[in-house]
């Protein structure tokens, strides 16, 4: 599966225009196609390797979830991204497709407050369970006071 095939497949299936940079294909998708795209990438493009998932806070424009999956045989890299929309925090979970998404989505929830629907065990992973706020959001100042140990 080379990038050109992937691009035509994506264009046909999801109706969006991917950006190609070498072996990396970047696809921006609407949020409701998120899990479908993951499953399709795994089954059709052979991107079985789940590399990482995270989010970016674009301030007023809201959160964007990004995810990188790879086909290790052909070297194809698929970079999926989806804008959740201003103020929105819900995103479909990729755990039913990739088991590796489990801890990555928990981390993303921990840091950005993105709520992944259908995640089997969505709770904080790095921060204490009773932490307040989501540190990697841009409105979370680095000197935000936090509650003392309880």
């Amino acid at each position: 599966m080379n990038p050109a095939d992937a691009v035509s497949g994506i264009r046909e299936k999801f109706g969006v225009e991917p950006v190609v940079d070498g072996a990396t294909v970047t696809v921006a998708l609407p949020v409701d196609q998120w899990r479908e795209a993951g499953a399709w990438a795994k089954s059709t493009l052979g991107c079985r390797y789940f590399n990482w998932l995270s989010a970016v806070d674009w301030k007023a424009e809201g959160l964007e979830v990004v995810c990188r999956v790879e086909n290790l045989e052909s070297g194809l890299v698929l970079f999926l991204r989806t804008r959740l929309g201003a103020g929105a925090t819900r995103c479909p979970s990729l755990v039913p497709v990739y088991r590796g998404a489990d801890w990555m989505e928990r981390e993303c929830y921990d840091m950005f407050g993105v709520v992944f629907d259908d995640h089997p065990d969505l709770r904080r992973i790095l921060l204490p369970q009773d932490w307040e706020g989501y540190p990697l959001r841009k409105d979370y100042a680095i000197d935000t006071p936090h509650a003392p140990y309880r």
């Binding site: 079985r48 390797y49 789940f50 990482w52 290790l72 990739y98 590796g100 990555m104």
Partner: peptide, 20 residues
């Protein structure tokens, strides 16, 4: 299959037969 799905890398994935 599990190694790729979870996203292992380095000696772990190479120990599972993936030349990555």
């Amino acid at each position: 299959e599990l190694a790729e799905d979870v996203g292992l890398s380095g000696p772990l994935i190479r120990g599972s037969g993936v030349e990555y």
